[in-house]
Write a protein that binds this DNA or RNA. Structure first.
Lengths: 143, 143
DNA sequence: CTAATTCCTATTATAATCACAGGAAAATAG
DNA sequence: CTATTTTCCTGTGATTATAATAGGAATTAG
């Protein structure tokens, strides 16, 4: 299994927020209740999404979170890179990795680059809006 | 980083074996020497490849390992599924997983299925033979 | 001021990964 | 039959990652 609960939950959270969007902010308590995930664990995930510029938070009474962009502009790739750290299949392809001195002689590098590319293309071509139209009648999720 | 050293080393090992194929068997000592990986660790990886029907081992003097099929018939997908256990991005898509009772209502399942599919298509379309023609002058690998 | 809410820093438990060690079993050569 | 080589099998330890929770500081609205 390649993706951790952080990434999986992040998608659920964002679809939930997109579906319950309104004027003002959505509280974590709300989302946690609907998604049946502990508020504290959600917090740590949402914090990453704030850092990544996907949602923004507002403290204090009446505060909460809201999406920074409309759902159709939120790429799943951005979310997963944000919560998983990176989606690169191997260390030498993560952003900011130390350049490998023997790149020129590596038999496997082209394969990994290609895999990275197909994952990137797929995940960046899928948005939260696409997910909203998928599945059944809402509010219940599996993963 | 999604793929463990087991999977990465497995690819190196198999490319090495394919490039040094000959009559008879190749010993782990040979491969370990060329690839600069400990013989003991190689052993645990190659054992998986034996179970997976990718290489076969022969004990005793003159023994070793050899590929079960020509390199152009060994799919990278098969190797990685073998060493990584599964390439499915989420638990509910691994073979033999307990069927999820709320599948019909899941907003994210279609996305994960699609990701699983693109990974499968790519990795199953790439063979050890493809890797042999990649990179530079051989015997040195990075990952 | 008080209540609600995000933000921040730890901590713990569990599991996975990485790697090595020791020896049993099998095959061959002599 | 013996010695040697090599795979096969089981187990272990160190390190790191994941999953989840806890406690409290900072901020805002009323």
């Amino acid at each position: 299994m390649l993706i951790s609960t952080k990434g999986r939950y992040a998608l659920r959270i964002l679809v939930d927020m997109a579906e319950h969007q309104r004027e003002g902010y959505i509280t974590l308590q709300e989302v946690a209740g609907r998604q049946d995930i502990s508020e504290k664990y959600l917090e740590s995930i949402v914090r990453e999404l704030v850092k990544g510029g996907i949602v923004s938070g507002q403290r204090g009474k009446g505060g909460g979170y809201r999406l920074c962009r409309p759902p159709e502009k939120i790429k799943v790739g951005d979310i997963l890179r944000c919560t998983e750290g990176s989606l690169a299949p191997v260390a030498c392809l993560t952003e900011g990795a130390a350049p490998c001195p023997r790149t020129a002689r590596c038999r496997t590098l082209a394969f990994w680059k290609g895999l990275d590319e197909v994952i990137r293309r797929y995940t960046d071509g899928y948005t939260i809006a696409d997910m909203m139209q998928s599945g059944g009648d809402g509010d219940d999720y599996i993963i």
